[in-house]
Design a protein around this nucleic acid. Structure first.
Lengths: 205, 205
DNA sequence: CGAGCGTCTGAACGATCGTTCAATATATTC
DNA sequence: GAATATATTGAACGATCGTTCAGACGCTCG
């Protein structure tokens, strides 16, 4: 199928041009927004010819769609349960993951933002974003349910929704500059929400 | 200066074309993102000729800059203190304002989102967004300080920062669909944060 | 070797972009 | 009413856009 990726490659990596094109598109989308993503700019950034971009990706739309799906993968991985831990620690680890330095990169946060912005403009992209968000929230609710089996499912959903809001605010605000103290406070708040005591009616002071 | 806006206007309002151009740009930005904002599209949407857009706005950049400043104005107005209320109620009113139906419009939320997305791509727009956010947070901190005069200033800043995160998450998440119950819960959470009891060291269970 | 196939290139096409500008329309001033 | 200033138009410019395509390259198989 592919022309043998073996053999000493000249520079660092000239194989798998399709992947390099996708990464170039992601880089441009993050740094310059959708206006900076032209087929020619992507080709230049990936070090390939213009024609090859249209060879591997039928459309500009297909290219961007592939880029958005890549972002979605990274997102979902955040709530992927760590099987080495017990349920409660597994949930805590997932909640802490949004404060990881590798997650709070400007490049990654900006990519997420551009995904949201594109979702407003293009119905096709909106579906990708909505489904990603739905999957993420479902993963979160499952983690909460596992850590607090006594909770009714809809209460887990409520808590997942509230945490989702705060986490969305966290990464969005992080784009203006990292305030690690504020991040820790909000991560702690998410843990409180997720692991709050009894499922009983909320207390009213 | 302007050619007498009196006289019976033909349709509904054909005067103040500059304002209509700006509103057309905002409408397009909200509905289609930055890719949908071309000088020609703006002219068509505003019902004026192409040349007039470049007459009232030197650049495309100037036009978008004006649009972003308009969004900023709407944002800041949210924390504008209501002089008819006492400090604590004034703060509560400001915090509740983000749940107002007129604020949770898709058009307005999408505009905000596009502002953030543009800020990532263009240094000039980034400055506008950063300053708007700074002014908003300062207004929030001032409201908290007025409602809780015994708090040290930096504690007010911390609370404003935390509330800002949650509110950013609120409007961003609202773009996926309005979950009024979740919104109320988060508004309540913001009130708790802002009006929390003593400024003493936080309790540790 | 030559036919076949997947990969890759760069020129070319028509469409659209932002910007400029001469010309016209409208309002203000004397 | 002429003169002037302001507002408005639409054609035209060069640049860039997404897409297409004929051809070249490298590899495998008979």
């Amino acid at each position: 199928m592919s022309p043998r990726p073996v053999r000493a490659m000249d520079a660092d990596e000239k194989v798998d041009r399709q992947a390099r094109i996708l990464e170039a598109a992601l880089r441009l989308l993050s740094l310059q927004g959708i206006s900076g993503v032209s087929m020619r700019a992507v080709a230049r950034e990936a070090g390939v010819s213009l024609g090859l971009v249209n060879y591997h990706y039928e459309d500009k739309t297909s290219l961007i769609r592939a880029a958005l799906r890549r972002i979605e993968e990274l997102d979902i991985a955040l709530v992927e349960p760590d099987p080495a831990l017990e349920p409660e620690e597994r949930l805590r680890a997932a909640l802490k993951r949004v404060a990881d330095p590798e997650f709070l990169t400007t490049e990654y946060l900006s990519l997420r933002l551009q995904l949201w912005a594109l979702a407003q403009a293009h119905e096709d992209f909106e579906r990708i974003n909505t489904e990603a968000q739905k999957r993420y929230r479902a993963g979160l609710a499952a983690l909460i349910q596992a850590a607090r089996p006594e909770l009714p499912a809809d209460e887990c959903g409520r808590r997942a929704a509230d945490i989702d809001v705060i986490q969305n605010g966290l990464w969005l605000t992080a784009l203006l500059g990292l305030d690690h103290a504020s991040i820790s406070r909000n991560v702690a708040r998410c843990e409180e929400i997720a692991l709050a005591g009894p499922p009983a009616a909320q207390r009213q002071d």
